[in-house]
């Protein structure tokens, strides 16, 4: 089967300063299909963020392999690149909204316009603002715009809607889907919100507590437009079951 990203991690152990060791990640195997939207759920502190950091190349201290076939797959001009939306927006406070997005662009995209992105995400009015003048919701939108502007093959999102009020988070989820449909790429997103997972994902991976492994992999059959409240509730219940049974086991 062709995949865009194949994760085959044997283990990741952290050494604490007191000399103790923490077995954070165990046998962790999963792969992402091109242009799919995969969401990872699991108990808090279960190594979801660590997994994303390993995929992004920010954490190299693991045993195993992570193989990406970014060049031959989906994505626009930024073929072969990975973009990320971190938990905190991580915008440069000393650069304006527009400069923050423009700085991330790789050389071939330097002249490209991201008017459509700014229109969709409602950022036109704030393009010359500094990040300190934005609300958290707006700053998150800028981070999302920056990620899509590089037209990546793989987009990593680490709880991008955490600590927003529910209506704002809902609006942002809808915006994320709209932007993603306009600029398709492979998405891997982490969340602790199972409803969010049921609404957005093609595939849902349920992670266990430490040491992390995949306990369940659910494919959401219906297309996003066809998912009504009862269907989403059905998926949510299914997810809650796997997460809870995991809680009981350990």
């Amino acid at each position: 089967m062709s995949y865009l990203l194949n994760v085959d991690i044997k283990e990741r152990i952290f050494q604490t300063q007191e000399g103790a060791s923490l077995h954070a990640i165990g046998q962790l195997n999963f792969s992402l299909q091109p242009s799919s939207f995969t969401v990872v759920v699991g108990p808090s502190g279960c190594g979801k963020t660590t997994t994303l950091r390993m995929i992004l190349g920010l954490d190299q201290g693991y045993k195993g392999s992570i193989e990406a076939k970014l060049d031959t797959s989906s994505g626009g001009h930024g073929k072969g690149t990975t973009a990320a939306v971190f938990q905190e927006p991580r915008l440069l406070p000393w650069r304006t909204v527009e400069q923050n997005v423009r700085l991330a662009l790789p050389e071939p995209l330097k002249q490209s316009s991201f008017e459509d992105l700014f229109d969709t995400l409602g950022l036109q009015e704030v393009r010359s603002f500094y990040p300190s003048q934005l609300s958290l919701g707006l700053a998150r939108r800028v981070a999302i715009a920056r990620a899509f502007a590089v037209e990546p093959s793989l987009l990593i999102l680490d709880e991008p809607f955490v600590s927003l009020d529910e209506p704002t988070a809902d609006r942002l989820r809808a915006l994320l889907l709209r932007v993603w449909q306009a600029r398709p790429c492979t998405v891997l997103m982490v969340t602790h919100n199972v409803r969010e997972a049921a609404e957005l994902a093609d595939n849902i991976l349920v992670f266990s507590k430490r040491p992390t492994r995949v306990v369940d992999s659910i494919t959401v059959e219906k297309s996003r437009e066809q998912r009504d409240a009862t269907y989403i509730q059905h998926i949510v219940d299914k997810l809650k079951n796997s997460v809870q049974s995991e809680d009981v086991q350990s």
Binding site: L56, G57, L58, T81, T82, A83, A84, F86, E88, R90, L92, L103, A104, P106, R146, V150
Partner: peptide, 10 residues
Amino acid sequence: EFAEMGRVYR
């Protein structure tokens, strides 16, 4: 955090 952002966006 900013250094990591810079690495991800090359």
